[in-house]
Nucleic acid binder design. Structure first.
Lengths: 147, 147
DNA sequence: TGAAATTATATCGTGCGCGATTTAATCGCA
DNA sequence: TGCGATTAAATCGCGCACGATATAATTTCA
């Protein structure tokens, strides 16, 4: 067996490492784009979710992002502290907390409109390549049991 | 309802989200595989690096994983606490810390040998699909400037 | 040769990510 | 109707990430 090609422990042949590294590299691209907005990368994803369909319960947001309340509750409180969202118990079901955008939160959508394009440009890949990658990732995620 | 194809902020068309979600999904696959070894996912990546080329300085490991000493120093101390690695100042250059595998750390390589295969199987994708995805990810990472 | 610049690691603070547990509201069903 | 099961958030603890800063060793070069 040829070791150079088949090393079972070399990072260079592990998909998990490529995914890990690519995700971090992508985060590094977004950071400077989001800094002027005062948002972290995960906070940006939460705002994207709300811009698309606010108001949403904590659980709904979590379902879309793959996160649980142990991660979301503190993050949403921070967004509330920034004045971007408002949290309140749902009247119909007091167990739920409904999260809605404030005026300022809604206004941020326009200010963030340029971000996806800038990020795509920073990857240096063509639209076709980006699309192909996205399809593969979605296929992977679809294959991993949705719990 | 419409698929929200037009929404500029919908999560469903953002590559960053697919990458983010796929990475986490992958982490969830690895977790049960690594739990018997007592390793976290990032610790596993560090051990992979060392299995491939120990001893390495903290900086060398960081270069391969895209991490800095602020992340690695505590992690390596934990691995040292588990008895898997040994840290010591480099005699030739006292600024450096050389990280080497212990007997136990070396022994873990065999115990972890089945992990990559199990993870690949759990994705439900064919070898060809996994390879294609890996190529795309590597292309993406190569395109993002290494600073 | 010696002071300034550079390099390697460590430390600190903040914000995720997630397993485990807790509390409270709602539901199921005899 | 009542009571156990389920569900939704919140809380706690630990371990990454990472910007900013600190400290010490090494290199550079005037």
């Amino acid at each position: 067996m040829n070791k150079a090609d088949q090393s079972p422990t070399g990072l260079e042949h592990m998909l998990c490492y490529d995914l890990y590294a690519a995700n971090h590299a992508f985060g590094r691209i977004y950071k400077p784009l989001l800094a002027p907005l005062g948002l972290t990368y995960p906070q940006y994803l939460a705002m994207l979710t709300l811009w698309a369909a606010a108001p949403l319960s904590v659980g709904e947001i979590g379902r879309r992002l793959g996160l649980d309340s142990n991660t979301l509750t503190p993050m949403l409180k921070r967004l509330e502290g920034m004045g971007l969202v408002q949290r309140r118990r749902d009247g119909a079901d007091e167990r739920r907390v409904s999260v809605d955008l404030t005026e300022a939160g809604r206004a941020q959508e326009a200010q963030a409109a340029h971000v996806p394009g800038c990020a795509a440009a920073a990857t240096g890949l063509s639209m076709a390549e980006l699309l192909a990658l996205q399809l593969q990732l979605r296929k992977l995620r679809g294959a991993l049991k949705p719990d």
